[in-house]
């Protein structure tokens, strides 16, 4: 038990040192890098490490007779929480959300320290000691607090009242409701009934099963199925069109949506809203193929107001591509991400 706990304590100390070092730039802030795609699981693992660390630390401290008073445990935990949320979690959490987490954290800490009468007394004892000022140290502390608290409160309110400029928060609907039909190059397409004319088997028949069997495999890397190389000259039907769609994608779309269709293209850094990440399960995987056809054809300028048509740089592709080319690109995007388009039934 002791060995286990000391290991925990070691993890805790190492973790705290590392986090503190990265926060205050003592060690480079990318010492433990967050890798795109693994961030949530990385953060969960980290938090688990800290839980183990804290358990170990408090056990070791009490075993050595240096147990930290409940009062400081509570405060320390809350400070750790705030620092972690502010400096570690990426992308950054807005202040309002952090304030909410902070409040919840504070309530939790209070519930923990006031679970029973005895704990509560232990918790408030240090506060009472300072108020009563029976010892020299406490007296000194009392005067320090007397001066410090008004100064801090005054300073914070001054800071809060100084005029500031922060980017206004604007909420955009990423997938607005589609129209019933859309007219592209003079032909009307009903979204409910239209089909991708290139989702066909080698005999040229519309065949969802065939195409779904030939998309890339899910899992690390999302690689093509070993016997389904779109660059194979002998391909007929689906895979041939995937390749043609890929060629169009890499002549037109990758500049924003990126070589891996993750929205990290060459120009992406300059734009806001950022280009869609097709590998995210929340984009094309949630949508019908005809919805994508409508979005690609009409582009940003064709969005309803809740989609911010004024800010999107997505081209209305009907200005650049033929209907056939658009269908092929859509085909390629589903192939390359390994997702199936949603269907109406």
């Amino acid at each position: 038990m002791k060995a286990l706990m000391s290991l925990g304590a070691l993890i805790g100390v190492a973790g705290l040192l590392l986090l503190g070092g990265m926060t205050f730039d003592v060690v480079p802030s990318n010492t433990v890098r967050l890798v795109e795609g693994y961030m949530p699981i990385q953060l969960l693992l980290e938090v688990a490490c800290f839980v183990i660390g804290f358990t170990g630390l408090s056990y070791m401290a009490s075993a050595m007779g240096m147990a930290l008073p409940r009062f400081w445990q509570g405060i320390g935990f809350w400070i750790f929480l705030m620092v972690y949320l502010k400096y570690r979690v990426y992308p950054p959490i807005p202040f309002s959300v952090r304030a909410m987490y902070g409040t919840v954290g504070l309530v939790t800490v209070f519930m923990w320290v006031s679970a029973n009468e005895e704990d509560w007394n232990k918790f408030k004892q240090p506060i009472m000691n300072v108020l009563d000022a029976q010892t020299g140290m406490n007296r000194l502390l009392r005067y320090v607090y007397l001066v410090l608290i008004p100064i801090l409160v005054g300073g914070f309110s001054f800071n809060a009242m100084m005029p500031k400029s922060e980017e206004p928060i604007e909420l955009r609907t990423v997938h607005p409701a589609p129209p019933a039909s859309t007219k592209v190059h003079g032909k009307t397409y009903t979204l409910q009934t239209s089909q991708n004319p290139y989702r066909v088997n080698p005999e040229g028949k519309y065949d969802q099963e065939f195409s779904n069997a030939n998309i890339v495999e899910q899992g690390m890397g999302r690689l093509m199925k070993p016997n389904a190389n779109p660059w194979d000259e002998k391909n007929q039907g689906y895979l041939k069109y995937v390749r043609e769609g890929g060629e169009i994608f890499f002549q037109n779309c990758h500049f924003c949506h990126g070589d891996n269709l993750n929205g990290r293209g060459l120009h992406a850094f300059a734009f806001n809203p950022i280009p869609a990440n097709f590998t995210d399960p929340g984009t094309i995987a949630q949508l019908q193929e005809t919805f994508i056809f409508w979005r690609v054809s009409k582009g940003g300028i064709g969005l309803p107001n809740e989609g911010f048509p004024w800010a999107s740089v997505m081209p209305p592709w009907e200005q650049h591509l033929t209907v056939d080319e658009i269908w092929k690109v859509v085909l390629f995007e589903y192939w390359h991400t390994g997702y199936y388009p949603r269907t109406w039934d």
Binding site: C256, H267, F269, A270, V313, M314, P315, Q319, H320
Partner: peptide, 11 residues
């Protein structure tokens, strides 16, 4: 940050 104008022709 500046990106290329790639919405309308000439991109």
């Amino acid at each position: 940050a500046m990106g290329g104008q790639i919405t309308h022709k000439p991109r």
